[in-house]
């Protein structure tokens, strides 16, 4: 009960939990489309690709306001998306390798810039790396506001383009024959994932971001065959693991929030994979032993 009142009245905990919940909802819902389109690793690449943007935004403006850094991250994530699509479409490099190339090259350039800033700048840069490795404990109310605005915007776009996304996800050829511009819808969807990633960097960090997109969607897929239900359920699972992770991390000293969010999520994924009706793996084993 104590925790519950803390959740509402404790400034730090409230921000951590809210930030993680917003991230969970947005990444869960958008991740559903990514997972169904077999782009589960896109989030990983985009998360790494945000680093040079954050550094350049700071170098240009000298500001550490969340909005500026978010914007820098989003722009470089978006550039990475376009480079990625180009490599896949116009060279013989396969998607898997292209993801790896974009991920490591953008991140390498980012590290170079980050080290450069660390070595050449005044003390003002402290905390820049928080935007990359996630330090939920230091999430401020301003951060939460920015995240919420970005998240609501992304989900609004999903609501407006829901039908288009749905067709494109399940039958891209049919979508094209209906006159939808497959290429642009793909770019829009990926850009929205960039938004989710940018929100996530601040809370869970670059390495764990991919799980925030993939995990809730994979878990939700186990419980339903309907896209609407899956998207909503994934948002719910995302939020649940966000809040659970935040609570666990403050319940004991010195536990990092990001990893606890991911571990909570992992538990949800495992339960869903094993026990969900129909698609649960355990039912398979039962069916086998009967037969």
């Amino acid at each position: 009960m104590n925790l519950l009142t803390d959740l509402i009245f404790d400034y730090t905990l409230r921000n951590i939990a809210l930030g993680a919940a917003v991230l969970g909802i947005v990444s869960g819902m958008l991740g559903s489309f990514a997972v169904l389109r077999r782009q589960g690793l896109l989030g990983d690449t985009l998360a790494h690709a945000a680093l040079p943007g954050i550094c350049i935004a700071y170098l240009l403006t000298g500001s550490k306001s969340p909005l500026v850094l978010f914007l820098g991250a989003a722009i470089s994530g978006w550039v990475a998306t376009l480079v990625l699509l180009r490599i896949v479409r116009e060279t013989r490099i396969k998607e898997d390798s292209a993801l790896g190339v974009v991920l490591s090259v953008f991140f390498g350039v980012g590290i170079m810039l980050l080290t450069f800033i660390l070595k050449h700048n005044d003390a003002n840069q402290a905390g820049l790396d928080k935007f990359l490795f996630g330090q939920a404990a230091t999430v401020t109310a301003e951060d939460v506001n920015t995240m919420t605005i970005l998240g609501v915007f992304a989900l609004l776009v999903v609501a407006v383009l829901y039908k288009e996304f749905k067709i494109m996800t399940f039958d891209p050829n049919f979508a094209a024959s209906l006159g939808f511009n497959d290429r642009w819808l793909g770019v829009i969807l990926t850009s929205l994932i960039v938004v989710a990633v940018v929100i996530g960097l601040r809370t869970v960090g670059v390495v764990l971001m991919s799980a925030m997109l993939v995990g809730p969607a994979v878990a939700a897929r186990q419980w339903t065959n309907r896209l609407e239900a899956m998207v909503l359920l994934a948002g719910f699972f995302g939020a649940l693991s966000g809040v659970a992770g935040a609570l666990i991390s403050v319940s004991e000293a010195n536990l990092p929030t990001g990893p606890m969010v991911i571990l909570s999520l992992t538990v949800i994924v495992i339960i869903s994979l094993l026990f969900a009706p129909q698609r649960g793996i355990l039912w398979d084993i039962k069916r086998f032993s009967k037969a």
């Binding site: 997972v35 077999r38 782009q39 589960g40 690793l41 989030g43 990983d44 898997d96 390495v207 764990l208 971001m209 991919s210 799980a211 997109l213 993939v214 995990g215 969607a217 994979v218 897929r221 186990q222 010195n254 536990l255 990092p256 990001g258 990893p259 606890m260 991911i262 571990l263 992992t266 994924v269 994979l273 698609r279 793996i281």
Partner: peptide
């Protein structure tokens, strides 16, 4: 139940999170 790329996308963050947790 899970595509190859999604499988990768869940497993390694879980391992990394476990590692960070152990360190902490």
């Amino acid at each position: 139940r899970v595509g190859g790329e999604s499988a990768i996308g869940i497993v390694f963050p879980a391992m990394f999170a476990l590692g960070t947790f152990l360190v902490a």
